[in-house]
Design a protein around this nucleic acid. Sequence first.
RNA 1: GCCUCCGUAGCUCAGGGGAUAGAGCAGCGGCCUUCUAAUCCGCUGGUCGUAGGUUCGAAUCCUACCGGGGGCACCA
Length: 572
Amino acid sequence: MTPQELAVHLARILTEIIAERRSAATTGENDAATGDATEILVTESDAAPERPKNREHGDWASNLAMKFAKRIGMNPRELATLIVAGVEQLDGVAKAEIAGPGFINITLDAASAGETARRVVEQGEAYGRSDVLAGEKINLEFVSANPTGPLHLGHTRWAALGDSISRVLRAAGAEVSNEYYINDAGAQMNKFGRSVLAAALGEEAPEDAYPGEYIGELGRKVNERIPNLADIAANDREQALELAQEAAYQQQLSEIKDSLERFNVHFDVYFSERTLHTEGENGAKSPIAAAVDRLREQGHVFEEDDAIWVRTTDFGDDKDRVFTRGNGIYTYFAADAAYYLDKKDRGFGEKIYLLGADHHGYIGRLTAIAGAAGDNTETDITVLIGQLVNLNGARLSKRAGNIIELDDLLEWLGSDALRYWLARYPADSPLALDGEKLRSRTNDNPVFYVQYAHARSCAVDRNAEAAGIRRKDAFDPSLLTHETETELLGKLQQYPSVVAGAAELREPHRIARYLEELAADFHRWYDHCRVIPQGEEPVSDLHRTRLWLNDAAGQVVKNGLDLLGVTAPERL
RNA sequence: GCCUCCGUAGCUCAGGGGAUAGAGCAGCGGCCUUCUAAUCCGCUGGUCGUAGGUUCGAAUCCUACCGGGGGCACCA
């Protein structure tokens, strides 16, 4: 019996109690029943039992009676008595009792709880996946760093978090597109081009040039790509700038993609802003011009002071925004709007944006665009704002020139430690990267603690094989009665709901926290319960059954780490 | 001024209205001829920023205040 199955039973039992009271009331047999009872609906999520902190409170506890007592018109303990009567009838339930103000504490029999070990092993990588978000087509945009320089510390959190959110959403059955919006149009690109051209030609850097050594390296690579750049520049400076800028852009973008791959972060779509400015064949309007037209038809666009505006204040923004400046050039916001419409046209329901706290002013205008596009501003757009990352107390920014590149972090700390650490905290919690801790192999750095649980389960497998212990020879879950086995099984049973919850809340850190608890339960179990017999002790069904449990725990650790983009090595 | 996030053990932080608020680290003390101990066990440690409210019940939801981070462009 899993908690999910228990929830189904609890919801059914309570529904039947309600129906019974209603029919009793209509036949006049019970005056106490109130008329309100006719409208009460009990869902599975209402009935989801919790794992009590205190072992004396059973394997699973439900607050269902307290939640519904008032609406039904009974006192909680009275209602709990009726529910308990139903729960006691269920197969696999050893004991059900009422405690405190109306908690229902349920204890499963060992065989029913132990069944989980086999279920996990048989489902393998599929264990924990669900269809709670099935049918949802979600667009997830994150990182979207300008292709004018390498990814740095400021981008790493969103890269790790976004990729993990995507994995968690997919595990819950959603269809997700990970998208990186490339700001490859506009003044920053031109500045980038001038900086690299100067470096390539060995000239002094322009006054407003990008700082950083990488510009010089890009200059060298541009020279490799365009060996006669100097000649071209001598003849036609503009043409040289154009070629150098384009070559540098392609080079930089390709390096960004490589870095992300090394970080185990995958994008399905790299969306170029330029394509929004490009006119179609036969003089068709550019997507951005078409977007402005569409919003104008909806009545959200007006002109004032030579500029074209969109009335975002109609949708809660604190001021109206400019689409086209007085000089006729589209703002970035106009491109953002066109991109939004493109996502909508591609059939995405919810569009999620992952932004740093320094962008929180974007919430209002992005939400307004969704509203102007005719979308539901509550359900079709989500802007997740996360706090920035600190390194040794000093916040770093690209503009400040004090760059720590993602590649440096990867080389220094490794992808696993970095990704785990970044995924371990809620996005809205400030986070500090501490190199000392991330390199340490102690419990200061929990990724090793979790990975070790997996490696340890693999070590047990190797030893079991050598000792001739095989899963297929026996599985008797009623033997898994040790306290640490009950705990470990309970933890394994919680995994699917942890994944589903992390998906619904877009909070992958719940997976990390769960894994740390699971690893602790596994290590504790390992310490108390041997899979390989000691000394002359013969191999028994208990050992064989424990091998199932060992493999189940290893599997869930692996599944969870995978959702965080962290590997599960077989040896450390 | 307005918007937004945060305030929980000495430190770093978990904690989707539930029972006695948890973990790691730090501190003190145990277990290694081991299914290799990056593990495990015990002890110490709390006005959940303050004050109200909502209800059977609040660290959790609401309001106000105090303290801290970030943001409020015809920038990109």
